[in-house]
Design a protein around this nucleic acid. Structure first.
Lengths: 118, 118
DNA sequence: ATCCGTTATATTTTGTCAAATATAACGATG
DNA sequence: CATCGTTATATTTGACAAAATATAACGGAT
């Protein structure tokens, strides 16, 4: 089977560049937290340490007016984490921006691919 | 005067993520090389070492089928550098992709800005 | 033949960021 | 009240990237 042309992966960051900004890494973490209900489990799926994941969550929660992730510890399940309504909103907007950007740049992206070596 | 809302700065990277990819940093370097005709001068304007700038140029030239920057050393002026036709083409496509992405995501970008703290 | 500003390249040093490790706090459940 | 899996936090270690430093090559101009 012929492999399809690689898709552009726009790495949108805001409000600025740098490690504390919201970008594709934090968005992916949000998706996995939403899917698993656990920071630890999301981190494991992404191959990152819990420490790193939690640092990202803390940074996200500080960046926005309202926290994106609500977490609880203790209890029968040991605890867990979930997206707040604000978290769902941000993730939705960001995901749509990625798709919009991909669609808007597809033609130029393909032209650029043809200029690459290999 | 009211300050205008910050513009999204899409950080488009291709063909993949990582230091050897083409992204906003290399694009900016290309612009300065085109404007100054010198790698050293472009590096100075960007506040980076000549060493780093030249490493980026080498990586760019290796990434594409044809080199993006043509450089010469010696001579009365000491040497210099300029964009090749391929370099102009790549820079043009990339710049347009940035603009297209900005336009396509403007509405969501503004919505996202309003959710930020500060 | 010397000078000069630039390109080109290697080597060393430094600084920063990620990873690993360790430990504490939590609270429903049994 | 002991247990358990998770969140929460600090500290140390290590890897890697950026910076600094040094030096060579080039070739037209004087």
């Amino acid at each position: 089977m012929p492999r399809s042309a690689p898709e552009l992966q726009p790495r949108l960051r805001f409000p600025h560049a740098g490690p504390d900004a919201f970008g594709p890494g934090k968005a992916e973490l949000l998706r996995h937290i939403a899917a698993t209900g656990s920071i630890a489990e999301a981190a494991a799926e992404l191959g990152m340490s819990y420490n790193r994941a939690w640092t990202l969550v803390r940074a996200m929660n500080a960046l926005f007016r309202e926290p994106l992730v609500a977490s609880a510890r203790g209890g029968g399940t040991g605890g867990g984490a979930a997206l707040t309504p604000a978290g769902e909103k941000v993730l939705g907007l960001y995901t749509r921006m990625e798709a919009s950007c991909r669609a808007a740049t597809r033609a130029d992206w393909n032209a650029l691919l043809r200029l690459l070596r290999g």
